[in-house]
C-alpha cells in the first residue's frame, strides 16, 4: 500500500515544477515504474486523480508504464528476471501491510535494498546489478500551451 505515498510524491513534485516553470496545466504525464515495486495501478490511478483535483494536473492523461526487471550478476554473468528473484526472497524479512495483514518483501518498497535481500541464483554473489525495472520516474510530461 505505498501507492498513495508514491502518488503524493509524483503529484507534489510535478506541481512544484509547474509553479517554478509557470505551467498552468498538464495534458499528459507518463510514469515508468520498476516491476520490483509491484505497483497496483488501479490504486495508484485513484490516488493520482484524487490528489490532482483542483490543480494543474486535473484531467491530465496518466500513462503508467511498467519496466520489466532484469538482474545481471557481475561475478558469473548470469541474468534473471523478477519471477526468479521473487522465489529467492526470504520470508523472514517483511513489511506488514495494513489493513490487509499481508506481509510483503521490503524490496517492493525500497528496491535499492536488492543486494541485501537477494543473491545471484547461480553463484550466490551479491555483486549484481538491477539493470532495469527498479525505481519510479517521471518519463514524460506534455504541457498545455
Amino acid at each position: 500500500m505505498h501507492e498513495w505515498s508514491l502518488a503524493e510524491a509524483v503529484v507534489n513534485s510535478l506541481l512544484s515544477f509547474a509553479r517554478k516553470e509557470g505551467v498552468s496545466s498538464f495534458r499528459e504525464v507518463e510514469l515508468t515504474f520498476g516491476e520490483v515495486m509491484e505497483l497496483n495501478r488501479d490504486i495508484f490511478r485513484t490516488a493520482f486523480e484524487e490528489l490532482s483535483r483542483g490543480t494543474p494536473l486535473e484531467g491530465a492523461r496518466l500513462v503508467i508504464r511498467e519496466e520489466p526487471a532484469l538482474f545481471r550478476c557481475n561475478s558469473c554473468g548470469h541474468t534473471w528476471d523478477f519471477d526468479e528473484a521473487h522465489k529467492m526472497l526470504s520470508h523472514e524479512l517483511g513489511i506488514l501491510e495494513e489493513p490487509s495483514g499481508d506481509r510483503e518483501s521490503p524490496l517492493h518498497f525500497l528496491p535499492d535494498l536488492a543486494r541485501a535481500l537477494l543473491k545471484c541464483p547461480s553463484c550466490g554473489s551479491r555483486d549484481f546489478e538491477l539493470v532495469s525495472g527498479k525505481n519510479l520516474r517521471v518519463s514524460r510530461v506534455v504541457i498545455s500551451e
Partner: peptide, 16 residues
Amino acid sequence: MSGADVDPMLHEARAR
C-alpha cells in the same frame, strides 16, 4: 519535457 528535471522521491523526502 523529458521529466528528468523532476525527482519525485527527493521532493517528497524534503516535504516530509
